[in-house]
């Protein structure tokens, strides 16, 4: 049996309604952009789940490494002054 080509893998991102975030739906196989869009629609939007679709070749996705999570995300945790609750507001001040 010869190796069978199942075409390239693409990641599918779907926007459920205008204004919403694009959310990862899953992946599909396709040989080109147009086929990728059509397959994404047929696979992930059979019931009006999407109003807009992005498809991206899986090989173009760069992902962080879970083993580096500590080092990679740590700087965010020690800057509590980035959160509004860090600040002391004067007694009686409204709508702030």
């Amino acid at each position: 049996m010869t190796a069978d080509n199942q075409l390239d893998v693409w990641e599918v991102f779907m926007q459920s309604k205008p204004g919403a975030n694009y959310i990862h739906a899953g992946s599909i196989h396709a040989s080109d952009k147009q086929m990728a869009l059509q397959n994404a629609r047929d696979t992930y939007s059979r019931r009006g789940e999407g109003t807009s679709i992005w498809v991206v070749p899986s090989s173009a996705i760069v992902a962080s490494n879970p083993e580096d999570n500590g080092m990679f995300f740590d700087p965010a945790n020690d800057k509590i002054y980035r959160h509004p609750t860090f600040y002391v507001m004067p007694e009686g001040a409204k709508a702030i």
């Binding site: 069978d4 899953g26 992946s27 599909i28 047929d42």
Partner: peptide
Amino acid sequence: GGHGLYLYSAAETLGVSRDELIE
């Protein structure tokens, strides 16, 4: 057919290819 595709692509995230699965 769509459900099959969701599951194949979920399985492929484990490093097995669609060709291998069908084979």
